[in-house]
Simulated scan of single mutants.
Amino acid sequence: MREAAVNLLQLKVQNLIDPIYWAIVFAWLGLVVTSLASIWGRVTSNTSKLFWSAIVLFLPLVGLYIYLFYCLFAADYSAFERFGFFRRKLQD
């Protein structure tokens, strides 16, 4: 156990083992599945849904980042106003 901890801290090649690769694959698949669920849960045209699905699937990491920024800019932030975030200035 001590040797494994030392290898981890020294970033030796022995640390790159199969379970780490599988964990990365499952994490990526989880992100893709949740992104696709988000895309198909939106109220948009089927063409738009197919377009975003293709971007997420065929541009593995970049597609997820592009969709993330799209969601951030297209989001409805009105729910945050109830908690005091994004308050508008009152007009006199």
Rank of each mutant, 00 (worst) to 15 (best):
V43M: 12
T44W: 09
F51H: 09
R82E: 14
F86M: 12
Q14I: 00
L8K: 12
Y21G: 11
W40N: 05
Y67W: 11
R88N: 15
N46G: 08
F51T: 08
I55H: 06
V56S: 00
N7E: 04
A5Y: 06
A27L: 10
V13F: 04
I17S: 01
I39A: 03
N7R: 05
Y21D: 07
Q91T: 12
G30T: 12
Y70N: 07
A27G: 02
I20Q: 08
S48I: 01
V13I: 02
E3C: 03
L64P: 07
D76T: 14
W52V: 03
I66C: 14
I55C: 08
R42W: 08
L16Q: 04
W28P: 01
L9W: 00
V43H: 15
R87K: 15
W52I: 02
A27W: 05
A27I: 07
W52H: 09
L31N: 05
D18L: 09
M1P: 00
A5V: 07
L11M: 11
L90A: 13
G63E: 03
V32N: 00
I39Y: 02
N46Q: 12
R87E: 15
R87I: 11
T47F: 14
F26K: 04
W52Q: 03
L9R: 02
F51D: 06
L50A: 15
S53M: 07
K12E: 04
R87F: 09
R87W: 11
L8W: 07
A74W: 07
F58A: 07
C71R: 04
P60Y: 10
D18R: 10
A37Q: 10
F83I: 05
K89C: 03
N46E: 14
N7S: 08
V32Q: 00
K12I: 00
A54T: 13
Y70M: 04
Y67S: 00
W52S: 02
A54V: 12
A4K: 06
G63D: 02
R82D: 15
F73N: 11
L57M: 15
P19L: 06
L8A: 13
Y70K: 06
N46Y: 10
Y21K: 06
T44E: 13
D18M: 11
Y21H: 07
Y67R: 02
C71Y: 00
V25T: 09
P19A: 06
L36I: 04
L61H: 10
F58R: 07
I66H: 08
S45F: 01
L90F: 14
K89W: 06
I39S: 03
M1C: 00
D76S: 15
L31I: 13
W40E: 01
R87H: 09
F69S: 15
W22S: 12
